[in-house]
């Protein structure tokens, strides 16, 4: 393990800069075409979002300040789902939100996107409060949620920001569809393609928005295991080409370890209603990460433990040898 990464665990605050590599190798010509940094010397392609709509490729910070959410239930009582969630996500960072089902991770994401509102605390994006259906965010839902009467192209175009000119929008949509590998299916209807393809179209629609914050709610949860791994790599490619801030809700520990700079684990303390951040893990190493890394295996075990899953390690007499310190650091 590189020494810098090990040291980095000493403090969460100083660590983040090391764990958010800002420069990724661009892995294909197509990706490079997909979006260039604004200061790039390369000619700006017609239809590139920054030229088209005046929107920048800026990634925004997201700050959760003591966010809580309770839902009214029968007999006038209320059920607290989240309490006191405070975390700051830096621009361009990928934050994975892990938790057991029903722990409120989707709720937290929906609050960040303005699809739901917090009952306590607040969420700031780029320093200003989230508004309803905030246009600085784009959501990739758990289900594809494509309009069945529209072709894939028309569905992806739905994500374009308002005011994108027709030709620019069309060029951008075509490029995104190629990026997610649906070039041959652009004219098809959602019911004519497979679930994995629909989910890729859904991701392209979210990307079409050129969001400052990309919110992904278990986007690959319904996919088969292999397609899921491919989709993870695709997401890494996309993020490498356009390093936006990503909040990724998942129940898949490996997915979180593969994709995220940082992982928060939402959990409930016994006796207290509502989940809050039970663990925070900075994932070592630059992406794409070795899926077989022993270091990640240690973290996986720890996170699974936090999710209430027995790792069976000690029981078999396997000694845990790791330099990774335990939370809180």
């Amino acid at each position: 393990m590189p020494a810098s990464v090990t040291q980095c665990f000493g403090s969460v605050g100083t660590c983040a800069s090391a764990s958010v590599p800002l420069v990724y190798p661009l892995r294909s010509i197509l990706l490079r075409k997909f979006r260039m940094p604004p200061h790039s010397a390369a000619p700006v392609l017609p239809g590139s979002a920054s030229a088209a709509s005046g929107s920048t490729d800026a990634a925004y910070s997201v700050e959760f300040a003591s966010v809580g959410r309770s839902f009214p239930s029968e007999r006038g009582a209320s059920r607290t789902v989240l309490r006191d969630v405070s975390i700051t996500v830096k621009p361009g960072e990928v934050l994975a939100i892990l938790g057991t089902s029903g722990c409120g991770k989707s709720t937290l994401l929906r609050i960040a996107g303005g699809l739901d509102s917090a009952s306590a605390g607040r969420v700031l994006i780029d320093g200003s409060p989230v508004v309803g259906f905030d246009s600085r965010t784009a959501v990739g839902f758990q289900e594809p949620r494509l309009l069945p009467w529209r072709s894939i192209t028309e569905n992806v175009a739905l994500g374009l920001p308002r005011g994108t000119s027709k030709s620019d929008g069309a060029a951008r949509v075509a490029r995104l569809i190629d990026l997610v590998g649906l070039g041959d299916f652009a004219g098809h209807r959602p019911r004519e393609i497979s679930g994995g393809m629909a989910q890729r179209a859904s991701l392209a629609r979210a990307l079409a928005r050129n969001p400052g914050v990309l919110l992904l709610d278990e986007p690959f949860g319904a996919l088969d295991a292999l397609t899921r791994l491919k989709m993870q790599d695709l997401l890494l490619d996309v993020h490498a080409a356009a390093p936006t801030t990503v909040l990724l809700v998942t129940h898949d520990v490996d997915e979180a370890l593969q994709l995220a700079d940082r992982i928060i684990l939402l959990g409930r303390q016994s006796g207290v209603d509502g989940s809050t951040i039970a663990q925070e893990v900075v994932v070592p190493g630059a992406r794409p990460r070795d899926r077989g890394s022993a270091e990640l295996a240690e973290l996986r075990g720890r996170l699974l433990d936090g999710l209430g899953i027995d790792r069976h390690g000690q029981a078999r007499g396997v000694e845990s040898t790791t330099a990774i310190p335990h939370f809180p650091y």
Binding site: L30, G181, E192, I193, M197, R200, K230, L234
Partner: peptide
């Protein structure tokens, strides 16, 4: 060429 690894168009589905 030019497409990321995630690509496997399933023509028969469509």
């Amino acid at each position: 060429p030019g497409l990321p690894v995630a690509v496997d168009p399933r023509a028969e589905v469509a």
